[in-house]
Design a protein around this nucleic acid. Structure first.
Length: 472
DNA sequence: GCAACTGTTGCTTA
DNA sequence: CTAAGCAACAGTTG
């Protein structure tokens, strides 16, 4: 779990234990851990005394005798244990251990084996590849100009910006969310649009969050050092990370989570000025598209899951993925929809797998749409919202209902009215009806529909306009 | 039992 | 140059 605060804490604990000891020998179980020349590492690390420890960003540095320096990055799960007993602590997750001159051992335990070590000469250290590009730690940033300058041409989102170690070093996924939450900044806004006020807030809050965590880490991470592995996060009070679905502690709005660059991002849509998102769902031929269209006319961004599915089937890269997963659906290199339909009917397991595959692709597209449209309300029509388990991806869910489905289908000159109505039964809309935030009943005139949509819109719009109690 | 998700970073590809 | 996607790996959770 090492972000900057943990590395700092490990540094403090290990400093007390190992400074003054000499590394007599090293035993490596996972060679790729060593990023600099392996033979030189093994040769040069021996008989080096540990003079001191320091930290840069998330890197831990052992300063050794003869001007050597050992650079360690823990990545996701790396841990150091300083122990007297070796045998009982060796397991398949131990990547390496050092034998110390007092008979103790320093064991590097790394379940996922992402951790890395480098051995340099001290004079190489400032210019070595890992450290060269490292940005300032929050407390070393003199003013907002530093961030404004660094982000000036960056098209990435603020969430990505805080994870960019070449600008600010030390924040990871957890604290990046915390900093944005405390600063009340939209995680999806472009870094280049950051203003001076916001930059100031980020610097102050990053400083505070990390310092608080170091403080808390010092008391709880103690268990880190003696044998047993650490479980969970430090006891610092996190208000964003892990709070998806819970009420915001500031304003009570429901905390949401979206993915940016593969990293989960939790935020308060209201405090952090992320315009609400709305899902429109309902059975076939109840007027969902009309409702979507009305939202569009009210100035909302709109999208449709059905259209996304169509675009997927038209996309070369998607078809390639589909073929890799379900090769038997392809005849002469082309997707045979007949086979898909037949198999969907007779093979339940296939149907589940196929639907999951399509829905996860659609979900990605919806996520992309949402994170790129956070300044105004975004509305997406998702007919099978509940089947695809996407209801939690939106701030609000609006159901559209009508007892005139048959009429509407007939109006569309649909040849298979009965079949359509039968398919309808698969829609788990009824089962999930209580999850709806709003219901629009489409039984009357266009005027009635417009007025209902208008009511829903203004209710949501005004909820968004609520200001937060506190601001930093 | 499988699929999705997890604290990080850097390399490859377009 | 940027941007995205993936790879490295193994465990936990639904």
């Amino acid at each position: 779990m090492p972000e900057l605060p943990e590395v700092e804490t490990i540094k403090r604990i290990l400093s007390k234990d190992v400074v003054g000891l000499t590394i007599k020998d090293v035993t490596v179980f996972y060679k790729r851990l060593i990023q600099t020349d392996y033979d030189e590492f093994v040769l040069n690390i021996k008989n080096k005394k540990i003079l001191s420890l320091s930290r840069k960003g998330k890197y831990l540095i052992f300063h050794l005798s003869d001007d050597f320096a050992l650079l360690v990055h823990f990545r996701m799960e790396g841990k150091f244990f300083h122990l007297k007993d070796l045998e009982s602590n060796l397991n398949k997750h131990v990547s390496l251990y050092f034998t110390m001159d007092d008979g103790s051992y320093m064991i590097f335990n790394d379940v996922r084996k992402f951790g890395v070590m480098c051995l340099y000469k001290e004079e190489e250290l400032p210019d070595c590849k890992p450290l060269k590009e490292l940005g300032l730690e929050p407390w070393d940033i003199k003013g907002p100009e530093y961030l404004l300058e660094a982000y000036k041409h960056k098209g990435y989102m603020m969430k990505e910006a805080l994870l960019d170690q070449s600008v600010i070093s030390g924040l990871g996924n957890i604290y990046a969310d915390e900093v944005l939450y405390r600063s009340k900044i939209n995680p999806f806004m472009k870094a280049k649009d950051l203003n001076e006020e916001e930059a100031k807030k980020i610097i102050v809050n990053a400083d505070e969050v990390l310092k608080e965590a170091i403080k808390a880490g010092g008391s709880t991470i103690r268990t880190y050092h003696p044998a047993q592995g650490v479980s969970g996060l430090m006891q610092v009070s996190l208000k964003a990370y892990g709070h998806e679905g819970k009420p915001c502690e500031e304003c009570g709005a429901r905390m949401e989570k979206r993915y940016v660059g593969g990293r989960g991002t939790t935020y308060c849509p209201r405090c952090q000025h992320v315009a609400p998102s709305i899902a429109i769902t309902g059975k076939i031929a109840v007027g969902k598209s009309q409702v979507l269209e009305i939202f569009s006319s009210l100035g909302c961004y709109t999208a449709s899951a059905d259209e996304m599915v169509h675009s997927l089937y038209a996309s070369e890269s998607f078809l390639k993925l589909l073929k890799a997963r379900f090769p038997f659906l392809f005849v002469d290199g082309k997707l045979d929809k007949g086979i898909v339909i037949t198999k969907m009917g007779e093979d339940k397991k296939f149907r589940r797998g196929y639907e999951t595959f399509i829905w996860s692709a659609v979900r990605d597209l919806i996520n992309t749409f949402l994170i790129n449209h956070t300044d105004k309300i975004a509305v997406v029509e998702v007919p099978l919202l509940f089947d695809a388990k996407m209801e939690d991806d939106f701030t609000f869910v609006v159901g559209v209902e009508s007892d005139k489905q048959r009429e509407y289908l007939e109006e569309r000159e649909d040849h298979d009215v009965e079949k359509r109505l039968a398919i309808n039964k698969r829609n788990s809309y009824d089962l999930n009806r209580k999850k709806l935030d709003y219901v629009i009943v489409n039984n009357g005139t266009r005027e009635s529909l417009m007025s209902q949509v208008g009511t829903v819109f203004s209710s949501i719009y005004n909820a968004k306009a609520n200001t937060c109690k506190k601001s930093h």
